[in-house]
Computed example of a mutant assay.
Amino acid sequence: MASEMAVNAVRTGSARAILVVNPEITSATRVWQDRDCHFIFGDVCTAILVERLDLAPAGAFEILGTKLLTSFSNAIRNNAGFMSRAEDRNPDDRDLLFRQEGRKVFKEVCPMGRRAHIRPPAAHDLQPTQVRCFWSNQAICP
């Protein structure tokens, strides 16, 4: 969502450039004994500088369009978060930590990701192979 807001702010002229920083700190909520809950996650931080194309250095990526996409799933959830682990109770209570049915999530996310990377180029009369980079939370650059 921050990337979408940054693109819109630069397009409308309310900002010349915006640095979007996306920290994802997940290790505190993982149940390391349950592979379905940690096999794809880790602590990471990505950043992208969004600025007008005429001010960008040579070779910069041009943002052709943006699309926010989400889908609710009971197969992945964090009911409480790691801050509630400070309560006076067993910090390993399962309801205080992240839950995921990894195989179900994988089957839900892969088709959604494929649709997200095929439809946007078509809206600009492009084939996916003509696009240098897709950004979806993190970059996917073929």
Rank of each mutant, 00 (worst) to 15 (best):
V109G: 00
A6R: 02
A86P: 00
R30F: 07
M1H: 08
E62I: 00
I140F: 14
P128K: 01
N22C: 13
E51M: 14
L68C: 02
A9D: 10
R16M: 13
A28V: 05
L126K: 15
D92C: 05
K104D: 12
P111N: 10
F39T: 01
A2D: 13
F41P: 05
L96R: 00
I48N: 14
V7Q: 04
L49Q: 06
R115W: 06
A2I: 09
A60K: 08
R16L: 08
N74K: 14
V21Y: 05
T66P: 04
F82K: 01
C45Y: 04
V7N: 00
V50P: 03
Q138M: 07
F106K: 06
T12S: 14
R94E: 09
R94W: 05
I48G: 12
A47Q: 09
L68S: 13
T29C: 04
N137S: 14
F82D: 02
I18Y: 04
P121C: 08
S136H: 12
V10D: 05
S27A: 12
E62C: 00
F82L: 05
D95P: 00
R52I: 02
F41A: 05
L97Y: 01
M5V: 15
D92P: 00
R132N: 13
N8A: 15
D125G: 15
C37N: 14
R132D: 14
A75N: 02
D36K: 02
D88F: 01
K107T: 13
T29S: 15
T70Y: 09
E51Q: 14
P142C: 08
I18Q: 12
D54R: 14
V50Y: 03
S3D: 11
P128W: 03
P91W: 01
M112R: 06
M1E: 14
Q100M: 15
A86D: 11
F82R: 04
A56V: 09
D95T: 07
G13E: 09
V10F: 07
I40Y: 09
N79H: 11
R89A: 08
P111F: 04
S73G: 06
N74R: 07
L55T: 08
A28R: 12
D125S: 13
D34E: 15
D43L: 07
Q130L: 01
F72A: 15
S3M: 13
P120L: 04
P111W: 05
S27D: 02
N8P: 00
F61G: 03
G113M: 12
A58L: 08
L64D: 08
M83Y: 01
N79D: 14
Q130V: 00
A2G: 11
M5K: 12
N90Q: 05
M5E: 13
R52D: 13
V109N: 00
E101T: 12
V21F: 04
A2W: 05
H38R: 08
L96F: 02
T29W: 00
F72N: 13
D34T: 08
C133G: 01
L19C: 15
A122H: 09
P120R: 03
